[in-house]
């Protein structure tokens, strides 16, 4: 996984700060269901496990992880909904 700087558009934002596994993946999954394929969810987390979990979720669901950014306190993800969900 590479940290990249993004100027990403997002169709929805989900703040999962303070939430531990499995809630970020659970809530991201519910949020992605509300989007159409090709739309982008911006996910904010504080659980360090999310750095492994969110890419794993994308591998399993066929969503595309467009970008990951780490700040001092947060992990930021941009997830494009795949065609199969």
């Amino acid at each position: 996984m590479t940290d990249t700087t993004h100027d990403q558009r997002a169709d929805a934002t989900l703040d999962c700060s303070g939430l531990l596994c499995p809630l970020p993946v659970y809530k991201a999954s519910l949020a992605l269901r509300q989007l159409s394929p090709g739309q982008v969810l911006h996910l904010v987390t504080t659980d360090p496990g999310a750095l492994e979990d969110v890419p794993a979720m994308a591998r399993q669901t066929g969503d595309t992880l467009l970008g990951v950014e780490r700040t001092e306190t947060n992990q930021l993800f941009w997830i494009e909904k795949g065609p199969h969900r």
Binding site: C21, P22, V25, Y26, A28, S29, L30, M57, Q60, T61, H84, R85
Partner: peptide, 12 residues
């Protein structure tokens, strides 16, 4: 419960 909920979230 955590594993089952996560699996379902992954589309399993």
């Amino acid at each position: 419960l955590i594993l089952a909920t996560t699996a379902a979230s992954l589309g399993w």
